[in-house]
């Protein structure tokens, strides 16, 4: 292999409201950028081929697999990760609170992905049909819970957000 200089792409992204500028190798996956460059290890990597959904983050408001995006492609994007749902010390986001109350998590590894999927769904569709809910949640794999409590948590989060909106 020839020792040629590896291209570095300058990018600017906003992660959880914080602006970050970096030089990245083109092949750096957004998931690795978030975890290792931005230091936000709450986004987990489970399959790196876009099936398990553990690495789901919001890119410009839309839920996306961060293992299927190169960091260079995210230049200019606004990214939200699980760490952005509630500030340290602040109360949990209603979706987080719902997963806690409904025991919608066990080992916690897939949880960040489910949280971001649920947040994205409820922000776009505050009252999803069963079909819409399952369509969204079935894009994430969980091996511990059997999903029943995750579905219950998403419904509970829907109610919490609606109540919060009413106030």
């Amino acid at each position: 292999m020839s020792e040629h200089a590896v291209q570095q792409v300058p990018i600017r992204v906003t992660v959880n409201g914080r602006e970050l500028a970096a030089e990245v190798e083109p092949r750096l996956l957004l998931s690795d950028f978030i975890r290792h460059h931005a230091g936000l290890t709450g986004t987990h990597v489970g399959c790196e081929h876009g099936v398990c959904g553990a690495c789901t983050v919001l890119v410009d408001g839309a839920p996306q697999r961060s293992c299927l995006v190169f960091a260079a492609q995210a230049d200019g994007a606004e990214i939200r990760t699980v760490e952005g749902l509630a500030e340290p010390g602040a109360p949990l986001h209603p979706v987080q609170q719902a997963f806690h109350e409904e025991h919608g998590m066990q080992c916690g590894f897939c949880t960040s992905g489910f949280l971001m999927t649920t947040v994205a769904l409820l922000e776009e569709t505050p009252h999803p049909s069963d079909e819409q809910l399952v369509d969204a949640l079935s894009g994430n794999l969980c091996r511990c819970t059997g999903y029943r409590n995750i579905v219950a948590a998403a419904r509970s989060a829907e109610r919490k957000l609606a109540e919060a909106g009413d106030e």
Partner: peptide, 9 residues
């Protein structure tokens, strides 16, 4: 097609 997380991109 896939799921919302795929269709969004």
């Amino acid at each position: 097609i896939g799921h919302p997380q795929i269709r969004s991109r």
